[in-house]
Amino acid sequence: MKIVGIDLSGPSNHKDTAVAVFDDQGDTLYLDQLLNTASDQDILSLITNLSAEEQVVVGIDAPLSYEDGGGDRKLEKELRQFTKELGMKSGSIMPPTLTKMIYITARGMKLASLLNHHVNVKVIEVHPGATLAARIPQDEGREHSLFYKRSPESADWIANWMMTFGLRGMQVNLLQTSHLIDACAAAIAAWGYGSPNRNPIWSYDANPPHHPYPFSC
């Protein structure tokens, strides 16, 4: 099984879209490839090729649906409460239709729809920050999961933690941007949800037809 994590930016911002592909080896994820810049077509071609040979679980860091009328989905309301208990700021969980989020939401919905046509592809929505904070104990460095986007020291700490958690085949210097770290964290969330040997820390079921994809962190 392949596990893919995608840190998605807006449709015109390919340079901040990162993809991490791993082989699920049971108790470890082994790095297959990292993409530091990716268009929709790059992602679609990559996952189409992977899914021709085996099952692929894809975790996308972007809202994959929105609430009719705008504002929070029920998902945001419950996830925000969960992450506040982990010490995360409530503003880290944003409504999909917020001005700064709407383009990412639109791209996420389009990409998920394209990928969902493949029989061997399972798409889930993820939140990398919540994925990390939920797995790192408070007294063992959880604060780094709150600061890695703006602190190089915390970014290095998180990269090292990922290797102790079970990510293999990579080095700290490979994760040169927070987007690549987020892509790897998105893969951890997808691994927890999709692998028969793992379990998510916190998940939310799909609710078709308006909210067709599950969430996991």
Rank of each mutant, 00 (worst) to 15 (best):
M1P: 13
V4R: 00
D7V: 04
D7H: 14
L8V: 07
L8I: 12
G10M: 03
G10I: 06
S12E: 11
N13V: 07
N13T: 11
N13H: 07
N13F: 11
T17C: 06
V19L: 05
A20C: 07
F22T: 02
F22A: 05
D23L: 12
D23G: 09
D24N: 11
L29H: 07
L29K: 07
L31A: 06
D32K: 10
Q33W: 02
L35W: 08
L35M: 15
L35R: 09
T37D: 15
A38I: 03
S39V: 04
Q41E: 14
I43Y: 00
I43A: 03
L44C: 13
L44F: 12
S45Y: 11
L46P: 03
L46E: 03
A52I: 03
E54D: 13
V56P: 02
V57Y: 00
G59W: 01
G59R: 00
I60A: 02
D68A: 14
G69W: 12
D72H: 10
D72L: 10
D72N: 11
R73C: 04
R73H: 00
K74P: 12
E76Y: 06
E76T: 09
K77Y: 15
K77G: 12
R80L: 04
T83W: 14
K84M: 13
K84T: 09
E85Q: 10
M88N: 04
K89I: 10
S90K: 13
P96K: 02
L98F: 10
T99K: 15
I102C: 02
I102Q: 00
R107S: 13
M109V: 07
A112M: 05
A112E: 02
S113G: 09
L114E: 12
L115A: 01
N116P: 07
H117L: 08
H117E: 13
V119R: 12
N120D: 01
N120Q: 08
K122H: 06
I124Y: 02
E125T: 13
V126P: 01
V126F: 08
A130I: 05
L132F: 04
L132G: 01
L132D: 00
A134T: 15
I136N: 10
P137A: 04
Q138A: 15
Q138E: 15
D139H: 11
D139A: 14
E140N: 15
G141D: 05
R142K: 10
H144G: 04
H144K: 10
L146Q: 13
F147H: 11
F147S: 08
A155N: 03
D156F: 05
D156T: 10
W157V: 15
I158D: 05
I158E: 05
A159E: 01
W161M: 13
M162L: 10
F165A: 12
G166C: 09
L167S: 02
M170H: 14
M170E: 14
Q171V: 09
V172K: 05
V172I: 06
N173C: 10
L174K: 08
L174M: 10
L175Q: 02
Q176I: 14
Q176N: 11
H179Q: 08
L180G: 06
I181C: 01
I181P: 01
D182W: 01
D182R: 01
A185T: 01
A186F: 00
A187G: 13
I188M: 15
A190S: 11
G192E: 01
N197Y: 15
R198T: 10
R198N: 12
N199W: 11
P200E: 03
I201R: 12
S203W: 08
D205A: 08
A206Q: 09
P209G: 06
H211D: 14
P214H: 07
F215G: 08
S216F: 06
